[in-house]
């Protein structure tokens, strides 16, 4: 069970964070320099697909991670940052904030940007800015999040 949950957590996590880095390091700079026609095509045929894998990857990563912690009977001590479980707990907190950013800020604002939800041009511009800042925040948070996740085992010797 443990192995299956860990596998699911990594598989979904790579999907999520891989697309997060694609958005920040590749797609945003690309959309800044292309023609309005190309941008419109990307908004119709590329960005919605990327966002689908991104948000569901985020949710499944969290669910598998939470199931792993529950399976190990350390969900409470992790989130309460108690003793050695504070290491994985910090990773879990950062991951939880990132999940809430995805579903609570990035996705609702992207729906306005993509025209899936009605919005005036001013609202669209504001939504685009909010989505970018939340996405950049998640990119920033992913750096310490991965540090704590990767070093939560006994073998790391860092804690």
């Amino acid at each position: 069970m443990e192995s299956l949950l860990a596998w699911g957590h990594y598989l979904a996590g790579i999907t999520w964070i891989g697309i997060l880095y694609y958005f920040n390091f590749i797609q945003v700079p690309f959309l800044k320099v292309v023609t309005p026609e190309t941008k419109a095509e990307a908004f119709k045929h590329l960005v919605p697909n990327a966002l689908w894998w991104f948000r569901w990857g985020a949710l499944f990563t969290w669910v598998f991670g939470a199931a792993l912690l529950m399976n190990q009977h350390r969900m409470g001590s992790a989130f309460l940052l108690q003793g050695p479980d504070a290491v994985i707990g910090m990773g879990a907190w950062l991951g939880t904030i990132m999940l809430l950013n995805v579903w609570g800020i990035i996705w609702p604002n992207q729906k306005k940007v993509l025209g899936l939800k009605e919005a005036t041009p001013e609202e669209k511009a504001k939504a685009g800015r909010m989505a970018l800042l939340a996405s950049r925040t998640n990119t920033m948070l992913s750096i310490p999040m991965l540090f704590f996740m990767a070093n939560s085992g006994h073998a790391s010797g860092l804690f």
């Binding site: 390091f25 910090m90 950049r136 920033m140 948070l141």
Partner: peptide, 30 residues
């Protein structure tokens, strides 16, 4: 000084700084 999140390099730098800060915090708890 602008928002560090406006650039990729600023975002990554902020991520490393935050890692060091949180490492110190968790180190105290463990």
């Amino acid at each position: 000084m602008g928002n560090p999140l406006d650039t990729i390099s600023g975002t990554i730098t902020a991520g490393f700084v935050l890692t060091v800060v949180l490492y110190g915090l968790v180190k105290m708890l463990v």
